[in-house]
Design a protein around this nucleic acid. Structure first.
Lengths: 221, 221
DNA sequence: CAGATAACTGAACGTCGATAAGTTATCAAT
DNA sequence: ATTGATAACTTATCGACGTTCAGTTATCTG
């Protein structure tokens, strides 16, 4: 009957109608552990301990360890989508919007490095996230694992606006979006993966990468 | 005495002086398994089975599972270094050499996608590789985990040549090298991580990224 | 042929993700 | 208030993992 590491009092079982709070408790505990210790180092038993239940109880709310990870990835994408929707509100020239969007992406990654790492770099990205890719048309945006495609679609929208505003691109809209995302991802992947590495000045790398990508994709003639 | 999955005949113990072949047998088996199944899915016992020895025997040659991984990463970097040294032989204008070098890096990654994945993307990159970073000056180039720094130094050398040839860079040599590597890495990371994803045309992405980076870093005035 | 020692093995430890079977708490209906 | 159903949870356990240790076998030296 002893539960030494428990965080919550024992014997407080939830009412019938609000069983969903357990799910969120689990996600909260799992996120903290995944971010602090990594995916592999985080055990089901440890998550259960923090929540205050036994390990098998988690399997009532998630099919397996990966399903927990998947839900957390979607949380991260939802945050990213919020940021980009905030940008869509502001009235900006398409080119400014592109640069702002890139800067926002970088800032997002550097402001939430652990979340970015877990979602994009940990190597434990659930297959569903990777497979959803960035073609949102055919996908239910609420299905688990497809929120990444929604975020990418917003980036493509910016390039469409640039074209309809009269400017020319060096590449088709989708290719341009891919190139820019790949570059930005390369930057933040390096910075997030090795934050303590003596990179040359961070601000120069960030500004440089933004200059490089915008200049490289939009025809300036 | 039964060993059903064994690949080599039992009872052929190596001579005193040539114990090193075992080490290479282990690396060969581990590489194949890591590449085919991934790091986590590959077990010490399975490697031992393929080699034809018991699991504890591996610990006579490697401190732990990570040390095997580290040796394999160094193998990959050695291959990459070979490619770049081949380029150093050819007499090329510095700008051509830069572009060729970038193209060679991309081709290397796409020709050896599984090795690239294991070394850069699997998320099991040994700490020694990541910490070695790209400052080769203070490091023994033969120490395990430091070959990555050697490869990066060669890229930086190209930018130095560009500068001494009279051309101007938008950034200091090292920053320029970091920016270019980050972009190229972003490209191949995406292509290697999701080879079956419907990217827009591969050749366009590759050429586009090369154009973008060279244009973005070297002043053309 | 006899130590010495390198190379290796069998058994075991503690921990992992996951499952099965059984128990307890809450609910709706009497 | 009591019942029966069922949601929520636990205990016990499984097979597999990386790793260690004590002991065994094969090769080398003399």
């Amino acid at each position: 009957m002893e539960r030494s590491l428990s965080t919550v009092p024992v014997g407080t079982r939830k009412r019938r109608g609000e069983g969903h709070t357990r799910r969120e408790e689990i996600l909260l505990a799992a996120k903290e552990l995944f971010l602090r210790e990594g995916y592999d180092a985080t055990t089901i038993r440890r998550i259960a301990d923090v929540v205050g239940v036994s390990a098998p109880a988690l399997y009532l709310y998630f099919r397996d360890k990966d399903a927990i990870m998947l839900a957390l990835c979607d949380q991260t994408f939802s945050l990213l989508i919020e940021v980009m929707e905030g940008l869509e509100q502001q009235p900006l020239a398409p080119l400014d919007r592109l640069r702002r969007c890139g800067a926002a992406y970088i800032r997002f990654a550097l402001d939430h490095p652990r979340e970015y790492w877990l979602t994009f770099l940990s190597g434990n990205t659930p297959e569903a996230v990777k497979k959803s890719g960035h073609r949102p048309e055919t996908i239910d945006p609420d299905a688990p694992g497809s929120k990444g495609a929604v975020a990418f679609a917003k980036l493509m929208g910016i390039f469409r606006d640039i074209e309809t505003s009269g400017l020319q691109l060096h590449y088709p809209v989708e290719t341009a979006a891919e190139l820019v995302w790949m570059s930005l991802h390369g930057l933040v992947a390096a910075l997030v993966n090795n934050p303590h590495f003596p990179w040359t000045r961070r601000d120069m790398l960030i500004e440089g990468m933004l200059d490089m990508t915008v200049r490289g994709v939009v025809k300036v003639k």
